[in-house]
Amino acid sequence: MIRGQSLPSIHRGAGRYRVEHVSGRVVLYLVITAGAFIFSTPLLWMISTSLKSPELINRIPIVWIPPELRWANYIDPWVEMPFLLFYWNTVFITVTNTAIILITNSLVAFGFARIPFKGRTIIFFVLLATMMLPPQVTMIPTYLFWSRLRLVNTFWPIMAPEWLSAAYDVFLMRQFYMTISTDLDEAARIDGCSWFGIYRHIILPLSKPVIGVLAILNFSFNWNNFITPLIYLNDSRLFPIALGLRLFETQMGGGDTYVRLGPLMAMTLVSIIPLMAAFFIAQRYFIQGIVITGIKG
């Protein structure tokens, strides 16, 4: 079996077993549409709430479309709080981290999946074990480490550890690489191709779906990361948007928080727009670009 060659268009749709009968298709559409409806209601509620004035928010029965759309919910917060700065910080951290992460993790995963070095199994299990300890435990020793280096209240503790690979990503990529046949590697080895050559010319071109998935997962993780910036950043000028939103929420004042729920929901929605954009860019690699098919070799 040799993989990685695109076939004529008739063969597109790898992994699909078609539901042929008409009745089957009707049921299929009914199920996914009903599910989609249920899944999107919380977000629709969020959109609706973001355009409401306070007195409409806890009305029974619910008012889905407010008689008067309150766009001020989307405008006023930008003046109250330096959201623009929060976004600049978030974009800087997220884009840099995601780009570097994809390179280092794919190299590390290649080592674990393809090179039969001594101690590989044990070391890989150690890598899995690092994921099992609650991050709250290593938090204190890790904080001491960064404060020794005098790097607290900088972006370093939020960025540098990410660059040095992440167990989750390595595990996922390894799982993917393990499904690619080794026939090509072995042929390339006999022809004198280096390990890096195999990585660069055989594995990497076949990895677009998993890289696409990891790009979006890492982008979302870094964009939403809350706990690490919370611990290491004191200066609000360095805050990413996740901390900014929390700050905005706590400044809404206690008690009847729903009074300012509209602006909060509006700002929360704005913060997920870049994630949606990133998803649309990344999805073509794992949703439309179905080039990884197999032919009999």
Binding site: G13, A14, T179, I287, I290, G294, I295
Partner: peptide, 13 residues
């Protein structure tokens, strides 16, 4: 998403 990516990797033949 991970399942979708996995499904794309199944050879059509």
């Amino acid at each position: 998403l991970l399942y979708l990516a996995g499904l794309q990797g199944i050879p059509t033949d």
